[in-house]
Amino acid sequence: EDEVKKIVKRLIENGVDDEQIKEIVKRQGVDERIVDKVLKELK
């Protein structure tokens, strides 16, 4: 989960929008619920 957080944070800093972040992270095989949780925490 910490790995996911790092990735998502980097994507947000690069101006990637939420939908794209979800797609990218899902392609890495991460559960969507984890992605949603991380996005909420970082906003």
Rank of each mutant, 00 (worst) to 15 (best):
E1G: 07
D2T: 09
D2I: 10
D2R: 08
D2F: 08
D2N: 10
E3W: 15
E3I: 13
E3K: 11
E3P: 07
E3F: 12
V4F: 05
V4R: 01
K5P: 02
K5L: 07
K5V: 10
K5D: 02
K5S: 06
K5Q: 06
K6R: 15
K6M: 12
K6W: 03
I7S: 05
V8L: 06
V8M: 07
V8F: 00
V8I: 14
V8R: 00
V8H: 00
K9H: 09
K9E: 09
K9A: 11
K9Q: 13
R10D: 11
R10T: 12
R10L: 12
R10C: 07
L11C: 04
I12D: 00
I12G: 02
I12Y: 14
E13I: 08
E13Q: 11
E13W: 05
E13L: 09
E13G: 08
N14K: 15
N14V: 10
N14L: 15
N14G: 11
N14P: 01
G15R: 06
G15Y: 05
G15W: 04
V16T: 09
V16H: 14
V16P: 01
V16S: 08
V16A: 10
V16L: 15
V16C: 05
D17P: 15
D17S: 15
D17T: 15
D17H: 12
D17V: 09
D17F: 07
D17N: 12
D18S: 11
D18I: 15
D18C: 06
E19V: 11
E19L: 11
Q20D: 10
Q20A: 13
Q20S: 13
Q20R: 13
I21Y: 00
I21K: 00
I21N: 00
K22H: 08
K22V: 11
E23G: 08
E23W: 01
E23H: 09
I24H: 06
I24C: 04
V25S: 04
V25N: 02
V25C: 06
V25Y: 02
V25L: 15
K26P: 02
K26M: 15
K26T: 14
K26R: 13
K26A: 12
K26D: 02
R27L: 13
R27V: 08
R27N: 13
R27C: 06
R27A: 15
Q28P: 03
Q28I: 14
Q28T: 14
Q28H: 13
Q28K: 11
G29Y: 03
G29L: 05
V30A: 08
D31I: 06
E32K: 07
E32I: 13
E32M: 11
E32Y: 04
R33E: 11
R33L: 13
R33S: 14
R33I: 11
R33N: 14
I34Y: 07
I34M: 14
V35E: 00
D36L: 04
D36F: 01
D36W: 01
K37A: 09
K37E: 08
K37Q: 09
V38E: 01
V38A: 08
V38T: 04
V38Q: 02
L39G: 00
L39T: 03
L39E: 02
K40C: 05
K40Y: 04
K40E: 15
K40G: 15
K40N: 14
K40T: 14
E41D: 15
E41T: 03
E41R: 02
L42S: 07
L42E: 05
L42F: 04
L42I: 15
L42A: 10
L42M: 09
K43C: 06
K43M: 11
K43E: 15
K43Y: 10
K43P: 08
K43Q: 14
K43H: 14
K43G: 15
